[in-house]
Each structure stands twice: as structure tokens, then as C-alpha cells.
Design a protein around this nucleic acid. Sequence first.
DNA 1: TGCATATATAAGCATATGCTTATATACTAA
DNA 2: TTAGTATATAAGCATATGCTTATATATGCA
Lengths: 114, 114
Amino acid sequence: MEKTIIELENAAQTLKLLGDKNRLTILGLVREGECCVCEFVEVLQMSQPAISQHLRKLRDAGIVKEQRKGQWIFYSLNTSHTTYPIIQQVLEQIPDQKEKLRALEDAGLRIQCC
Amino acid sequence: MEKTIIELENAAQTLKLLGDKNRLTILGLVREGECCVCEFVEVLQMSQPAISQHLRKLRDAGIVKEQRKGQWIFYSLNTSHTTYPIIQQVLEQIPDQKEKLRALEDAGLRIQCC
DNA sequence: TGCATATATAAGCATATGCTTATATACTAA
DNA sequence: TTAGTATATAAGCATATGCTTATATATGCA
């Protein structure tokens, strides 16, 4: 398997974005599959604009990509981005967020908007 | 091989520290072996207090450890720290800093103080 | 068309960050 | 003991960051 070396400056910029508890949780969530904004709002218990601003940073950096589906916009990991290997490695070393998504589903909040 | 999961909050704090070009370079350097402060100053072309402050953050977080040898203080990776696996994975994905250390040695600046 | 829902953007503000300069501390050697 | 070298700390400042509230935009549906 060939190794892609990520430029130090790009890596630093990406790591800076990962270095926030809320954004790291967002990435932990999309790791499980695409999520829409209202789900992040619910799981993180943050205001919608705050979530939106975090998502914008992640999207501007190419870490996540968005896809509109009618009324909703879904975010997912951008697996084809240069820094994806770093993201992947980092996410493998933190607790997964499956439980939070399950709780959301149990509360009927996942179906509600997706 | 057993997997150690790093708490999300700890991971975020560590990643925030890695998310700085200069600190990431410092870690790239100590990855090759212990280095003293003056070497960081030389390689990064930054002021001594600026380097010192970066080192303090890394040390306070447990990412690096220090060892005084006479007049000099050497820094190295703290391989026994909880977040070491993350550091290790990240460092494997960025360009190594061997060249810079070699240049330092060629300039006689490595021997000078170590 | 008009209203409700989902999301984005803008402006403002408190706090965090990363440097600078000045100074303190610790060690070495004359 | 005194001077020199290596490093740390403190204070100050400009800029970055992450929220808030208010508002704009886009879509779906009656």
C-alpha cells in the first residue's frame, strides 16, 4: 500500500480543525454515515448557527462534503481529500459515536428529519 | 494488539496542540530523537521565548518530556502518555524532519550545544 | 402565492492564542 | 564569586476563535 505524505502545513491546518471537541464529535458522527444538520444540533445540544459555522469550516477545508436532499443538507466525510488518512487514523482512536445516534433514533429524532 | 481508546476531550486537546505548524515541526524533530531548545530555535528560526512557550504547552499536555543535561534541556516524545498513539499516527503521515536535522549538523550547530 | 421548516450568513463580543520585549532563573567555568 | 550561556517566565498586544442574536436564503407544501 502506497503511503501518501501530507504536507506539514496542510496537516497542521486539518489538525487544528480536529482540535475542537464539538467538531471532533461531528466527525465521529459522520464517520457512522451521513448526517443532517438538525442531527448535529440535537446530539451536540448547540445552536443551529454554531453547528452551521463548524460545518462550514470543515467543508471549506475539504474534510466533509455536503449533499442537499430536498429540504435537508447531509454531511459526510470527504474520503477523497488529501488529509483523509489523518482523519481516519484519528477517528479510529477515539470512542465511536454510535450510541448517540442510537439515542437519537430511539427518541424519534432521526426519522423526523431524514 | 489491544486498542486504547482516547477520550474525545483529551484527543481534542491534543489535536489542538498538534494543529500548529511550529509545534507540529517540533514534534517531527523530536520524533527523530531528543533535541535541545537551541536546536528548535535554529531550525524554526523563531525567538527563544516563542519556542519555550510552545514547548511548555507540549510538556504541560504530557506530549513531550524534558531532561536536563547540564546546561541544556532536552525534549523528547513522551511515549508513555495516553495520547501517544495519536501523535504517532499523525507523525507517520507527515514528511519527516531528518533533512533539517542534517542541515543543522552540517552547519556545526548540532554539536555546538549538545 | 404565502407560510413553515431547514440551513446559511452577518455582526458583535468575550476569550484564547501566539508572538514580542523585558526579565528571572539555573547551570558552567574562569 | 562573577560573568556568560541556556532556558523559563511575565506582561503586553494584535489577531483568531467560538459563541450569541438577528436576518437571509432555499425548499416543501397548503
